[in-house]
Design a protein around this nucleic acid. Sequence first.
DNA 1: CGGCATCCTAACGGATACTG
DNA 2: CAGTATCCGTTAGGATGCCG
Lengths: 112, 112
Amino acid sequence: MLETLGNKWVYLVVCALRRGRLRNGELARKLEGITPKMLTQTLRILERDGIVRREIFPVIPPRVEYELTELGQNLAGLLNQIRSWSEQHVPDIKDARARASMESQEDSVARG
Amino acid sequence: MLETLGNKWVYLVVCALRRGRLRNGELARKLEGITPKMLTQTLRILERDGIVRREIFPVIPPRVEYELTELGQNLAGLLNQIRSWSEQHVPDIKDARARASMESQEDSVARG
DNA sequence: CGGCATCCTAACGGATACTG
DNA sequence: CAGTATCCGTTAGGATGCCG
């Protein structure tokens, strides 16, 4: 589960689909920087896990739409919780990191 | 942030430290299967981010203890939320996966 | 006991080109 | 437009050995 959550694109795709169904190309544009391969791969994972539903329209040119399932929307809620926690505490983490790098600088100076 | 959460060992180390401070060796035994390298690496990340506090006792043989900071305990709370969400919904995901693999089997049969 | 340095491989993510 | 196949560089993670 954590593996899934930790996946960079999983988060972004779920967020992109929060406001409604989207076509493959629309997703590709929204997630600027994602390669077709990663997009498809991510969508396959999410589809397999019942988080995203895939609908194919048998027309030419091809048309495929993706949307969150109920489970997917539920997951989006969890991701929101994580996001709000982050907004609340990431400053602390940044402070800690800044302090940590300061100390290692001091160490260097002390040694030098 | 999600990268940190997605890290397998981060989760396990934080959980292991939930009930109190532990020595390096105790952690190594609790997290059966972790290599010394990964344990140290994980602890360094957590220490740098202000999630874990490291206390060194200048004795022989060396003694080092780790414990969660306030921020760390807070993070443990978030991990709990994630865990309870998982317990609630992972069965759904498993069902979805089982169904998905069933269908791919049917596909094979249909092709074969 | 705690921790670091080194080496190595397996896997992941990305770029590209191609198919229906 | 949607999706696949192939190649490749990077890197995460594991095994090993040495030091204070």
